[in-house]
Nucleic acid binder design. Sequence first.
RNA 1: GGGGCCAUCGUCUAGUGGUUAGGACGUCAGGUUUUCAUCCUGAUAACAGGGGUUCGAUUCCCCUUGGCCCUACCA
Length: 528
Amino acid sequence: MTRTRFAPSPTGYLHVGGLRTALYNYLFAKKHNGCFLLRIEDTDQKRFIEGAREHLIEMLRWAGLEYDEGPDIGGPHKPYIQSERLKLYQQYASELLEKKAAYRCFCSAERLEDMRRNQEANKLAPMYDRHCLYLSEDEINQNLKNKIPFVVRQKIPSAETVKFKDLIRGNVSFACKSLDDQVLMKSDGFPTYHLANVVDDHLMEITHVIRGEEWLPSTPKHILLYQAFGWNLPEFAHIPLLLNKDRSKLSKRQGDVSVEEYIKKNYSKEAIINFIALLGWNPGSGEENEIFSLSELCDAFSLEKVHKAGAIFDIDKLDWFNWQWRKKKYHENLAETAKKIDGTCIISSPKKGEFQYKFKDNESEEVFYIKRTDLLNDMCGRFIHEEYKKEGGTYRKALLTIEEKVLKEPENAENHLKFFFSIKDYDVSLLANEKMKVDYAIAKKSLIGAEKYLKKISNFNSVEEIKSGLLNAVTELSLKNGQVFWPLRAALTGEEFSPGVFEAAWVLGQDECLIRIKNALSKLEKNM
RNA sequence: GGGGCCAUCGUCUAGUGGUUAGGACGUCAGGUUUUCAUCCUGAUAACAGGGGUUCGAUUCCCCUUGGCCCUACCA
């Protein structure tokens, strides 16, 4: 039975690198019909943070990485929180002491500091000098009697090499003489990572230890511990690190590292999971498709395909994944909505107007379009649609009734519609656009032409009428569509990205449109 | 200083003792009888360097260089 674990220390936030480690453990366990468990490694009292454990659990749940055993759900090896297992570690530390695989060290912090300073000055590797290994029985007893605080150190056997096979890196070996006598039990009675981790992995019957590469150098120490206890070794797999743009270990300094930050920024769990899964791993098919759901990842995952080199966390690609998943979900939403109204959802051909959707109601043959702009936030699109479907509904009414709702929605929903409520003091350069071939002169000409036609429109409740009026303006001015619509849309919304110009005009109403155009023209005046 | 790990386009990566070294993101250039993000088409760009082994090496070996990790009574 395959058993893996995610063993984070509660630091107050879940690092995206940690999430990926959890994901790989989860995928590997699920792939082999095994168990995935969560264990909290809170052996550092100094770093206790209120609520950190709950937060960690919340994040894992959010990501959909359900564990089979863990602190809040229990299991056959509970408790799953190390601070509640202290007796166990003390017991195993005594066993090591008895077996002479460990020894008490009474050295003070000052002595250790001096020792290291000397070693550094002499260009030696900073390592414990084994001062307390050679203490006599009497000296030890005397120290214990005098209540001198001590730690328990691992006794690394000399003149040996530790060799092991890492599932990702192959054969790895370390000379024992390069290994320090690691502290196993701190003077406060808490174990260090090394002891607690080995003891728990054994007791919890972990078969595969999948963890970050930063643990590779301490793996020989862990193996020595397993051997001292006479326990079977688990398999080890050290996965590559996530890196900043400059190739240093992914850190807070250079952008967001906590999963919570990405949630706040509206990244979906599907996008994040998909993205980090492919950072250091891929199915090896060489295909175009890179979109995988969690269950698809479970099927495809294998440790052999994990890369050895670290991977840069590239936000651009995350954005792309986020978009792909939003689109996918939106399509599903539409299909569902269509079913509800007893109709069908037709997504037009990719060649032209990819994101123009038609809802065909079987009864009335009513057809309407959801603009690609609405895709920018599916919540918004859905609200508008629902309101529109109500009897006597109009787009404008729909927008008005959702005002309150929308403002409570995530950031980009608000961004998308805020132009309606007020226009910001945009820079005049927004009215021009090089790619659209619009300079200030053309912008002015277009706005005057558009103004003229908008005044003429009698029924401003019809988006069709606004549209045909503006198209007439384009013809009369003998400009390209974009040359008229870009400055007009900019003038009406004050935004670089916004809903389409006809919808914007429609929603704003005739009077407001004319006011905003006047405002834009005066901005242009000042600049010519 | 010591130990370890690693090295294919700018980024994530596929791949092989003989390939036009493939895909994705990005970037750039076009396209779209409703403008911007979207979409389509195309372009761009890589085997770190030096030695071997070999008929032949990006692939196997060694060295160099570079990057990273560890070197705490943190994990």
